[in-house]
Amino acid sequence: MTDAPDDVRVTVWNEYVHEQENETVAEIYPDGIHAVVADALREGGFDVETATLQEPEHGLTEEVLAETDVLTWWGHAAHDEVDDAVVDRVTARVRDGMGLVVMHSAHFSKVFRALMGTSCGLKWREAAETERLWVTNPAHPIVDGVDEYVEIPEAEMYGEHFDVPEPDSLVFTSWFEGGEVFRSGCCYYRGEGRVFYFRPGHETYPVYHQEEIRQVLRNACEWAAPNDDGPEVVRGNHDPIEGIDTSDERSVH
């Protein structure tokens, strides 16, 4: 069980490029995608801050990440501009227990690809087509309060094959008007951290204004938050629990 939402600190990260360069995107997200996602999470009672690519260290300093329980990530046009040192910092925090929610085109982010160890490539098409986001694991907490499917009136198509590891749990599969399907809600464990990839969210469509999508994001942040009720993780050289002879001197350590 995670902490109550008001005890979960979320940092919403966005590269914040399209909103400043494209009029269509600016009309939908005048204050940035991060502002709309942050509002959705605040409605759920989370303690939320935002960060963007343009800030020093992309707003993801060691101090910020140390105070972050869950990081959400949206990127598209500027993946290569994310500093490798920040990527290493983020992935290390995930493995240490920070949750990560990766949204839409951030499948190609350095952070997600580093954690997956694959290309994370896929098919895509922009045609403002209908998407039906089907729940494939109705027992999973990420789908609490969600109907058996969510219909998104206008979406960018993502299609298989999606080059990611087999998810530890698959909670959504999408069908698109053009006929393709896609694994749209993938849960992973990396070290002590939880990672959720959530497909919807193309910048020229108002996907993050849709209440069902906002509910999923709230559920995902609650699921991804560190689990403080579990046992302490101990690694490294360790004294035996039972009485054994430890006089063997053949170790090369």
Rank of each mutant, 00 (worst) to 15 (best):
E63Y: 06
E63T: 13
E67W: 07
E67F: 06
E67Y: 07
D69G: 05
G75L: 02
G75P: 07
H76D: 11
A77D: 13
H79Q: 10
E81S: 07
E81M: 04
V82R: 09
D84L: 12
T91M: 07
R93I: 08
R95Y: 08
D96K: 08
D96Q: 14
G97Q: 09
G99W: 00
V102P: 02
V102D: 00
S105D: 11
H107L: 14
H107S: 12
H107W: 14
H107K: 13
F108K: 09
K110F: 14
V111C: 05
V111D: 02
R113I: 00
R113D: 02
A114S: 08
G117H: 06
G121R: 09
G121P: 02
K123G: 11
K123V: 15
E126M: 12
A128L: 04
T130K: 15
L133A: 02
W134G: 10
W134S: 13
T136C: 03
T136M: 05
N137F: 08
P138R: 04
A139P: 09
H140P: 11
P141E: 03
P141F: 05
V146G: 00
D147R: 01
E148T: 13
I152S: 01
I152G: 00
I152E: 00
E154H: 10
A155E: 15
A155Q: 13
E156H: 08
M157Y: 13
G159W: 09
E160K: 01
E160I: 02
F162G: 09
D163C: 08
E166F: 11
E166L: 14
P167L: 12
D168Q: 03
D168I: 06
S169H: 05
V171K: 01
S174N: 07
W175S: 15
G179P: 04
G179C: 09
V181D: 05
